[in-house]
Design a protein around this nucleic acid. Structure first.
Lengths: 340, 340
DNA sequence: CTGAAAGCGCTTACAG
DNA sequence: CTGAAAGCGCTTACAG
């Protein structure tokens, strides 16, 4: 016994509202859309009809007439493991969803299929949304930068291409975030500070390793080892192992993501090394990987949910034609815990 | 300099396709919708026109004509903290989004505002979606059960009301999951097995505490302490503290969620108690809270992303009029790690 | 301030 | 198998 797909046709229509209020369709529409060109009598009559009928405008009809969908898309890379176990995505999505939920817009989740990445692009180009929030992989940057010529688009990560075309980015200053974490290690007296970096073909990898390097240089210290991770605990553990094999042992580690730091901590423990006794660890991003590890990690809070909210806000500004600056930088702050 | 909201009108329309293919609008539409009532010549002509023009059907127009939106909503409770730091929601959303992304449907995230819960309901009742996936709080069960009379609705958690009306649920068997975790403690020789339960006014709380209780009874053991938690690490820690204060110390703990277990572990450590030496700990749900704690936790995997996928699948079946059973149970399995 | 009318881009009986 | 036409439920110049 299933519900079937008839909805019973009980949904009230604008025509019903107008009839009950004793006005024309046009006037009813004006009242509903908050036009000032209507008498208070009309407003009253229509409003009460709306309440009585529990009227909700049909989005499809409205979209068609206005040629606006009132829908925005959030594009997310497929790579299941990442999305699922990476608190970053959950936080951005939540921030954006919360911001959007206070408007008349609707947020739709678009997973960019590895098998058919063009599907996402066709959807976006097909006029199905008023704008898009992009969290996808750098390998597809070019397509999205291109897309932003015909559709309002906001990137959550600086695209790696720079062909001079304009695009909008909301992100933290990753150079600065890495510098804060590294400087903290310098300040507490570390002299041989290594880093586990995000992949060096991502803007996070490029920027965070740069922040680490220049902070050391400014402090008059030599850069110790750099090992690349992949944003996962396993990747962080592997990087830590390589670092330990190659030696010498650093006295400070700037693990450039809490997930990687958490993996590194496990390896350190295996080797009987204490944190922060033998090696002080600072990281970047504050989530359960940084709060829940032992010891809890000194980190730089990236305010990722705020970033999601501001991405959404920026996109709405773009869609509605309000002025927007190309780059919005989210503030970060150091949080000192036990690991450094 | 902003993009503004003109899209340049470059999007091809069905009329364009028909003209280029030399057929009528009706025929073009038929080809695009896979009708068999068309000659192969028409199919060829239209297909090539579609490719040439990069045509994508306008969803709004299609929705209006078909009176179907091709959109499904996932309703999530506001309570920021939960959604954000609770891997459960991320997993369900991901599973559902992945499943939906292989169809022509679109998944929209609806956050049920604490301030105006009626807003969500109006949206759902307004014919804006073809169906809804409900993850919201039990306090609103009645509204959603009521809603499911006029809209296909699938619950991710068994609603607490039972007024005889039919509704569709996709969930794990929480009684059984708790029994598996508890039985494992019994099997390893624990005699005084306590539990930290989810809130007892939720179906998870009711079922998991029941599974714990009846497993002990079947084993001929007395139920030791039960303390209520709230699904968070802090709640688990508080529950553990109360348990320790009241005594006596149990030799086994079935902490009914990995987050709560993680909080409890911290308190045990504070008190110098070892796991599993002094007290063996088993939990429910497998995520970074169970894999990332020390020791890693023996747990029952709830396959939460699969649950999300099956919720979506079930809803699509409902929408398209395929037969659906009222309850779909997701399989769970015990994963033995170091904590018990 | 208000209403009649055209139009948004599709789908779908209906007639052929 | 195909096409002309009506209609889905709104919005918005246009005329008054």
């Amino acid at each position: 016994m299933t519900i079937g797909n008839e909805q019973g046709g009980t949904v009230a229509t604008l025509r019903d509202v107008a009839a009950l209020a004793g006005v024309s369709l046009a006037t009813a529409s004006r009242v509903i859309n908050g036009s000032t060109q209507v008498t208070t009598a009309s407003v009253a009559a229509v409003s009460s009809a709306v309440a009585k009928l529990n009227y909700v405008p049909n989005r499809a009809a409205r979209s068609l007439a206005r040629r606006k969908t009132h829908m925005i898309a959030m594009v997310i890379p497929e790579q299941t493991s990442k999305f699922f176990s990476d608190p970053y995505f959950a936080a951005v999505i939540q921030g954006a969803a919360m911001r959007v939920s206070s408007t008349d817009y609707t947020l739709t989740l678009l997973i960019e299929s590895d098998a058919d990445p063009q599907k996402t692009m066709r959807f976006l180009e097909g006029g199905n949304v008023d704008g898009a929030l992009i969290l996808a992989r750098h390998s597809r940057d070019a397509s999205y930068v291109e897309l932003s010529r015909s559709l309002p688009v906001v990137f959550g990560v600086r695209p790696l291409i720079d062909d001079g075309s304009e695009h909008y980015v909301v992100d933290v200053d990753n150079v600065e975030a890495a510098a804060k974490a590294t400087q903290h290690l310098v300040d507490r007296g570390c002299r041989r500070i290594a880093t586990i970096s995000p992949p060096l073909d991502t803007s996070a990898g490029i920027d965070r390793s740069a922040g680490w390097r220049h902070t050391l240089r400014d402090a008059g210290l030599d850069a110790a080892q750099l090992e690349e991770g992949d944003f996962t605990p396993a990747g962080g553990a592997a990087a830590m192992r390589r670092m330990l094999e190659r030696g010498p042992l650093p006295d400070g580690l700037m693990a450039a993501s809490a997930q990687m730091a958490s993996g590194a901590l496990g390896v350190l423990k295996e080797h009987g090394l204490t944190v922060p006794g033998d090696i002080a660890v600072a990281t970047i991003d504050d989530n359960y990987f940084s709060t829940n590890s032992s010891p809890p990690l000194t980190t730089v809070d990236l305010a990722t949910d705020t970033k999601g909210a501001i991405m959404a806000e920026t996109l709405l500004d773009l869609i509605e034609g309000r002025p927007v600056k190309p780059l919005t930088t989210i503030e970060t702050r150091l949080i000192v815990r036990d690991s450094a």
